[in-house]
């Protein structure tokens, strides 16, 4: 069983694992948003959360304060996170455009209505 160092969190530096936990929570919340929200914009927000959770992992693995050994990603982590942010912005723009189009055509933003592709 892994060791959960929660007891002395106030007196000891945190590690990458803590960041990963926060990222996991964001990720899970995002995934659940995507899975439970009927509002298309809610799903978009879920995607943003998921991407942020992933970004947090990248930053954590690239940070030398959290894990100062030779295996850190270094700046690559930050660079990848940058790309994720930029692509998330692009993705959000396209997704919003799609949602608006969907709204224009169906007069609704309920994703459950968007099931023309069902088998």
């Amino acid at each position: 069983m892994p060791y959960f160092p929660l007891a002395n969190i106030l007196t000891e530096p945190v590690g990458a694992a803590h960041y990963v936990v926060v990222g996991a929570i964001l990720f899970t919340c995002g995934v659940l948003c995507m899975a439970t929200k009927r509002n298309a914009l809610g799903i978009l927000m879920g995607i943003e959360l998921v991407l942020n959770g992933a970004n947090l992992n990248f930053i954590a693995f690239g940070s030398r304060y959290l894990r100062n050994d030779a295996n850190t990603l270094g700046l690559d982590g930050q660079l990848v996170a940058l790309f994720v942010i930029v692509l998330a912005a692009a993705e959000a723009a396209v997704a919003l455009a799609i949602v608006l189009n969907f709204y224009n055509n169906h007069d609704s933003i309920d994703v459950d209505r968007a099931d023309q592709l069902h088998g």
């Binding site: 995934v31 995507m34 899975a35 439970t36 929200k37 009927r38 799903i43 994703v111 459950d112 968007a114 099931d115 023309q116 592709l117 069902h118 088998g119």
Partner: peptide
């Protein structure tokens, strides 16, 4: 046969993924 799985519901897909 596979058609039955494809419901067209986005949320179900996400749930399946998880």
């Amino acid at each position: 046969w596979l058609r039955k799985i494809q419901t067209g519901s986005l949320r179900q897909y996400v749930m399946l993924l998880v």
